[in-house]
C-alpha cells in the first residue's frame, strides 16, 4: 500500500514529526490487524495451496495502490477548486474507468504471474482457478477502493481536513484490509475449503 503524506509536511523537526505521526500509525496498525487475523485464520488453506500465499502481498497492496492513485487525483481537484461531484462530469468517469481498467490488467497479470511461479516451483493450481480468484477479488477491491476514495475525499473536504494528511492513509489501509478479507473469502469459496 502507499500512504503518501502522513502528518504535517511542513515540519522538519524530529519530535513534531514523530508526535504527529505515531498516533496515526498505531490506529492504522490496529485497522490492518483485521487483515492479519483473517490471514492467520486461513493458515490451513494457505498450507494446502501455497500459491495463495504467493498472491497475498499483492492482494494486500494493490487495492490500496489503486485507492491512492484515485484519492490523490480527487484531492488535487479539490485543492484546485473543482469541488463539485457532478455525475455528468466526464473527467470523473475517465478516472473511474481508468482505475477499473488498471485493476483488470494488474489482476490478470497477477494470476498469470502466480501460475508461472506455480509451474516453476511445483505448486500449481489451474490457470482458470487463479484467474477467477484474482479477478473476482481484485475487481471487488477496485470497486471498494473507488467508493471509499470518493466518500473519504468528499467528506474530508466538507469537514475542512486536508485529504493528504489523514484521509488517504486511512482509505488505503482500510482498502488493504478489504482486499485481504475478500481474497481469502473468494479463495475459500472457489477451492471449496
Amino acid at each position: 500500500m502507499v500512504a503518501p503524506s502522513g502528518g504535517s509536511l511542513g515540519s522538519w523537526d524530529t519530535k513534531t514529526i514523530v508526535t504527529n505521526m505515531f498516533p496515526l500509525l498505531i490506529v492504522l496498525s490496529i485497522i490492518v490487524l483485521a487483515a492479519g487475523i483473517t490471514l492467520e485464520d486461513a493458515e490451513e488453506m494457505l498450507n494446502e495451496y501455497g500459491l495463495l500465499a504467493v498472491m497475498v502481498p499483492t492482494m494486500v497492496d494493490m487495492g490500496g495502490n489503486l485507492g491512492a492513485i484515485l484519492s490523490s487525483r480527487l484531492s488535487t481537484r479539490f485543492h484546485l477548486g473543482t469541488t463539485e461531484l457532478d455525475p455528468r462530469d466526464r473527467v470523473l468517469w475517465g478516472n473511474v474507468a481508468a482505475i477499473l481498467a488498471l485493476a483488470a490488467t494488474i489482476f490478470t497479470a497477477l494470476a498469470l504471474g502466480a501460475y508461472a511461479l506455480g509451474v516453476l516451483f511445483g505448486f500449481a493450481l489451474p490457470l482458470s482457478t487463479l484467474l477467477v480468484i484474482s479477478l473476482v477479488s481484485g475487481m471487488s477491491v477496485a470497486v471498494i477502493a473507488i467508493v471509499f476514495s470518493f466518500a473519504a475525499t468528499y467528506a474530508s473536504y466538507r469537514l475542512g481536513i486536508d485529504p493528504d494528511d489523514t484521509t488517504i492513509p486511512i482509505v488505503t489501509n482500510v482498502v488493504d484490509v478489504c482486499g485481504m478479507v475478500i481474497f481469502i473469502g473468494v479463495s475459500a469459496l472457489v477451492l471449496g475449503f
Binding site: M1, L28, V32, A35, G36, L39, G64, T172, N173, D176
Partner: peptide, 8 residues
C-alpha cells in the same frame, strides 16, 4: 500484513 502496510 500489518508489518507490510506499516512500511508503506
Amino acid at each position: 500484513p500489518v508489518f507490510l502496510a506499516t512500511r508503506g
